[in-house]
């Protein structure tokens, strides 16, 4: 465990140091932002859509007769913004983005492409890790913002279409306990998840050994570890910021 922690810390320091190689990583940033962020928007929106629908229906089921129905808007908004938007998106992107990064860099490692980068006098971490981690940091909050928007819209359409709730009542519930800090909290969490998913993918990909089997192992570990760290971080931010 100590060895893993040491290796991870060493890797993080190396990645931070590699950020000084601006001319190496900057040209890769737009491509990585597209692959990590833009290409993740559809799956994040898809998940948020059904999360919003289910949240609205389940909260109305739970509230029936005891709590005014406009609290459906409150519950949908608060839950999507504070928890489900960032965490569900983070977990899904741990699979989509983290696995992709670990497999890609792992394959490069076992086919000597990482050594080739070194022999061309590039810093492999500046070329491979820095643009991906930076793209994760920047794009995850944007993807989550889209997901939050979609989840709330889905909850609103479900409430007005399937429940006995007007748009005004839904919005009233939505605004009742909303604080601008809620959104900031979600975006801070999302940015941290972006860093975790991409850097864990890079770490496991970069340290891959053992051919195709090693790439498979690294990919699985990257997803599992990223998911675990996301859940730990989720609790951490709740303790620190709420």
């Amino acid at each position: 465990m100590a060895a893993v922690a040491g290796r991870t810390a060493g890797f993080a320091v190396d990645v931070l140091r590699a950020t000084s190689e601006f001319r190496t990583w900057w040209p890769q940033l737009a491509t990585q932002a597209r692959r990590i962020g833009v290409d993740s928007v559809p799956i994040a929106m898809f998940i948020a859509l059904f999360t919003g629908v289910v949240l609205a229906l389940q909260s109305s089921y739970a509230f029936t007769g005891a709590v005014p129905l406009y609290f459906v808007g409150t519950l949908v908004g608060k839950t999507i913004i504070l928890e489900l938007g960032p965490v569900l998106t983070g977990l899904v992107l741990a699979g989509r983005v983290g696995a992709n990064i670990a497999a890609e860099i792992g394959t490069m490692r076992v086919t000597e492409q990482v050594d080739a980068l070194e022999m061309l006098a590039y810093d492999p971490l500046a070329y491979l890790a820095v643009p991906r981690v930076t793209a994760g940091l920047i794009t995850f909050p944007i993807v989550v913002a889209f997901a939050v928007g979609m989840g709330i819209v889905a909850g609103w359409i479900t409430s007005t279409g399937l429940l006995d709730l007007s748009s005004q009542e839904f919005v009233r519930g939505l605004r009742m306990f909303y604080r601008p800090f809620d959104l900031r909290y979600a975006l801070i969490k999302s940015a941290s998840f972006g860093v975790v998913v991409t850097s864990v993918g890079c770490l496991f990909g970069y340290t891959t050994s053992g051919g195709a089997e090693g790439v498979g192992r690294a990919t699985t570990r990257a997803v599992v570890v990223a998911c675990m760290v996301i859940l730990v971080l989720d609790a951490f931010w709740a303790v620190v910021l709420l």
Binding site: M108, T111, E112, Q113, D115, A116, E118, M119, L120, A121, D123
Partner: peptide, 29 residues
């Protein structure tokens, strides 16, 4: 790294960057 600027290394597996064309591989160097 500075020393490597004076070296060329031909890998046993070629180690070409498979996401790039042949010309892009050379241009990167």
């Amino acid at each position: 790294r500075r020393l490597r600027l004076s070296m060329g290394y031909v890998f046993q597996s070629s180690a070409l960057f498979d996401s790039m064309t042949v010309a892009e591989n050379v241009r990167l160097a």
